[in-house]
Design a binder for these strands. Structure first.
Lengths: 216, 216, 216, 216
DNA sequence: GATGAATGAGGATTCATTCAT
DNA sequence: TATGAATGAATCCTCATTCAT
């Protein structure tokens, strides 16, 4: 979204002081929201408790976010952005050219590390597949989905969009359920679950991505 | 007191009628609760909406259940019972004595069918945050885990308990995340997710269970 | 209320069996009510809990009493009646001719004993003088007031009704506040409070009732 | 961050305004609560009715008080404070150094006046059944008891502590029961009850405090 | 008469959101 | 901008009372 970036840049020039303070407030609020969402989940989190955690009044919160959902969406978006920045290199073309095991290492390791360090991200993503899903979760999910789909497409340019979508969802599901196990364990057990996640994905994806032309 | 005796005798006949009505109401309320929990999740479901869905007044609901949690616990308990029966059928020895693909079909199909017919089960067990339900969830999880571990052990008698436990958890995780996708979709898409779940598990497990050629 | 007595008598003749059973039920319910009122007070007592304590259904309770208040009124009335019967002799003319100290002994001792044995009576009488008083308390209070006023009138036939009413209320107030102390204490302390109650009343009433010999 | 510093400075000026508004609301709510408690008693008083009486929404009430009990406790606490001040004045040494009738006037008149002007105090302290209030009631009672005992001791230095305690409790009981009558009446009737209270106490105490050696 | 299910208005409390200052 | 008071609909739950059997 380059237009938005430019818009932000423009604002930054127009009113730097105020903008800076606003940004700080937003960051402060989002950090508080991350903590509260993480502790109580999205539904049980109250806007007042977020404001209190941030050390501001509820009115201030609503100066920056139109409603509770927007907080979750923005928080998810930022975490997603940070995630992307953090291991953006993982999705670079040069990584996608490697054999699957290395690709999985390259992509998953920073992703897992990020998740472990940002449990709020996880709290937000939860329940994504359940009917009655809320919009913000969809947004977050869609972001990750798009990334995975993009990788898949580059590996299987001949697959239909539906196939790609399907596979990406399955991959994400496996990733999420493994993250549950990873986050719930520690030390060697955690490492074992990480290994196992890669094993599952490797075995699942190998027949798809290693495409000996003759076999196909 | 001959009148009272006779009255009691009459009661003995009349009581079942009334008790039967109560049982029917309870079933009716639980069915309504299943629907509402399914649509809105536990937290967002209001007792009034459950009563309305059941076509009774809120007071009636509270004649049979002391509070909202009790409804969920009772519903969960009943579904749990039915689920266990299903699992018993699915994990019949004759089903486990087959090649992996057929085993997966035999075990997963009834499980999936049950879940699809009782979507409330899924909605309830998923992170309600309520102690009573969480406990049921753990019971359910432990039960499934034990069954899966038992199957795994029969296939890989040489594996350590820790390995078995690990693998079983991964399998369950994959199953759960796939159920999310299955329940969230319909028709062909749902069928595709079912197929994909089996594919994932087959590819993951094949190298483990495919014992040396000679044995086979 | 002689008409009512006759009505009861008539009923007793007309349908002895049923009437007897009804009376038993009523007694059962009132006993239960006494217990519950005593434990929780009138306001906090629920009709359902009274019915439960009596071992009957709420519907049955409403077969004999039109509403909660009627239970309290009837219970108070019966206790009052029993109190009157118990020490009816205390109010006989021959007792009223005695010197005040003996009169106080004769009247108060059985009254106090009765109160100690029927704490429900007390629970019902409580809060009688407070603005916002409820009707049933008024009824009970009025009964005792009438008795005291009657005694007072016989001692001071020249006093105006207003004076008699005033004095009777003060006497009742002193009696009630002393009963609080008496019921809250035991053994010697209780006996001391009883003595003190009599002292207070004696000193208060002596100048009123001990009229100069000539007047008599 | 100079802006924030200035903002804070501004806040220092603005805050009292807002805080003042809050204080006013609290006073307003407590006054409304006093009225409602007085009319209906604690149990029958609804928070909504208190809010309505105060002319605010129920939510506003809960911005200042966590629950219904807290309102009563705070109200009771404030009245208790004022009552203690009153008592301090009433029990001034110069008042206690007089003949009994004048002493009774000096002590009782301000007490009665205070109670009449704060009828909620009475309504609250009387058997609300709520722990917080019961405790305040005990505090109040203990305070008054101590004062009365102190007066009694100065009049009868030879009495045992137990005797003093006994008499003080009886006096307080008489005072309380008379307050019930006083508060429930108006105009001349009220005045008559006040007079009667003093008469009762005078006749009760005279033989104790006026100790002509010969009489004894 | 007896039962217990049924009712529904009402009560305490919460919370996303708005508003005056 | 920031504040925190204000709102009011919605929630869970209770209980006096009625009704079908």
């Amino acid at each position: 979204m380059p237009e938005e970036k430019r818009a932000n840049a423009a604002k930054k020039v127009a009113a730097p002081r105020r903008q800076a303070r606003g940004e700080r407030r937003i960051a402060q609020l989002l950090e508080a929201a991350a903590g509260v969402f993480c502790r109580s989940g999205y539904a049980a989190a109250s806007t007042n408790s977020i404001a209190r955690e941030a050390g501001v009044s509820p009115g201030t919160l609503y100066q920056f976010f139109p409603n509770k959902e927007a907080i979750a969406v923005e928080l998810g978006g930022r975490l997603l952005e940070r995630a992307n920045e953090m291991h953006g290199q993982a999705f670079l073309p040069e990584n996608l050219d490697r054999p699957l095991p290395e690709l999985l290492d390259a992509v998953l390791d920073p992703l897992i590390e990020f998740q472990c360090e940002n449990p709020a991200f996880w709290a937000l993503m939860h329940g994504s597949g359940v009917p009655g899903i809320t919009q913000e979760h969809q947004t977050l999910h869609a972001g990750m989905l798009a990334r995975v789909e993009s990788v898949l497409r580059s590996f299987r340019p001949d697959a239909t969009p539906a196939e790609v979508h399907l596979t990406a969802n399955v991959i994400l599901g496996i990733f999420k359920s493994s993250m549950d196990l990873i986050l719930a364990s520690e030390g060697e057990e955690r490492a074992a679950y990480v290994t196992e996640l890669k094993t599952v994905l490797r075995r699942y994806l190998e027949p798809m991505v290693t495409t000996p032309p003759t076999t196909r």
